[in-house]
Design a protein around this nucleic acid. Sequence first.
RNA 1: GGCCUAUUGGAGAAGUGGCUUAACUCAGUACCCUCUCAAGGUAUCAUUCACCGGUUCGAAUCCGGUAUAGGUCACCA
Length: 481
Amino acid sequence: MNEKIRVRYAPSPTGYLHIGGARSALFNYLFAKKYHGDLVFRVEDTDIERNIDGGEESQYNDLKWLGIIPDESPYEPNEKYAPYRQMERLDIYRKYAEQLVAQGDAYYCYCTSEELEERKESQLQAGIKATKYDRKCLNLTKEQIERYKKEGRKPCIRIRLKENHTITFNDLVRGKVTFTCDDLGGDFVIMKSNGIPTYNFAVVVDDHLMDITHVFRGEEHLSNTPKQIAIYEMLNWKAPQFGHMTIIVNENGKKLSKRDHNILQFMSQYRELGYLKEAIFNFILLLGWTPENNQEFFTMKEAIEAFDPKRLSTSPSTFDPKALIFMNSHYIKQLSDQDYLEFIKPHMVKVMDLSHLTDEQILQIANLYKEELGYGEQIVEPLNNIMNPKEITNEEELKMVSSELAKKVYATFINELNSLSEITKDNLKQVFKNVQNLVGVKGKDLYMPIRLKLTGVSHGIELINIVNILGKDEVISRLSK
RNA sequence: GGCCUAUUGGAGAAGUGGCUUAACUCAGUACCCUCUCAAGGUAUCAUUCACCGGUUCGAAUCCGGUAUAGGUCACCA
């Protein structure tokens, strides 16, 4: 490869960065970096109806958060290729669209959407399942055009697809793929009547002008590819290499849609729940891609080195939230004290007041949960059980807390606590031992009543740690109730 | 319906003609540890690669057909 590798991630700012988009961006990035190329962040904002505020910025920021750093974007433009927002490039598209019209490969179409709908309907009535545009406007006379203009109609521009023309391309993931122009669904629109290009046209113009060499995108674009190649051919441009990645499906085998509420899909949601970027990165890396050597955990650098598009899967990948949790807990365990503290504080703060604690004290508490956390927010519930004990409703448990034996345990325990000048893990161990000897109970009968009385639930971290967190006064007060 | 694509366990998947009695990881199950939950440890988890035929000494791997699933057929991207 002599030419400089240039790839792009081109989101439309109609939403926030989701799993599929992130994966698409990731593989493009890995490919580019492996061959010392550049990643371009381009904004496909031509659907002016659906664009949302902050969509572009959040996509850009979430990408960076994941460690996918674009080399060029609206914020760091290369003068040679700018601008990077399609709505700022309207003149460019118009120029090439007019060129296509001039050379007979495209034509103005004055049909209204109602007319199109009507004629599509009659095609269906006639038993034609694969409906396509009937080329009514292909050969309009001057008079007809004048009449339409007088009516105030604004034309769109349609591509004029060649007949009996076959388009073949070598997909980087799937190998040779062939389409016939007649199966492309008819002469599609390249410029809408409002002067804004359609996706398939804008993409071609931009990819060419931005010297994009390789395009990795979702399988849903596979059938757009021949349309785009048809335009490349008409403009006499060299098309980039395409690679179509498998789509991500949910556990029912359906494509992950933005409306799929069973699975969290947006980066920001994961970040807020306490997922680490390393885990998400690693997880999406292995979603539809496998390394040669079975390696499980990757740094970005390792992934760049190992990446090979030939090893992208061709069958759909199921998004398994459990696998993500596994990844995340792996990376949480690796966190340094300082990083872990920073990571976990925002979650702890939801159930306890940290302002009077030192970082060291907070860390001490947080470390009790480090091993078992799947994601940060999971610390909230168990910690809440300790800070704000639940009312016991279970009959068996009620019996256990209020038995004569239990009362004796509390009293002895309180006594022993009172005899301590300070509370440490070691002397708490001794306290339990003393109570065991004095009352004559051990194991479950000793620990469970205290645990229930203190927290209201029958499970949680080691009881000694709970006592340690709550402190002498609080423990005595709860046990005396 | 047309076109395109896929089909190995609950999941991600390795494997592209003999070295596979289908690797590895996650999840699951059982046991150990333990006051409990979790973590950790140990063990276990596809006589079989969607199905039916064919080629071959030999097939998950090659060929043909069938079935199923998904994608796409917009003046959305």
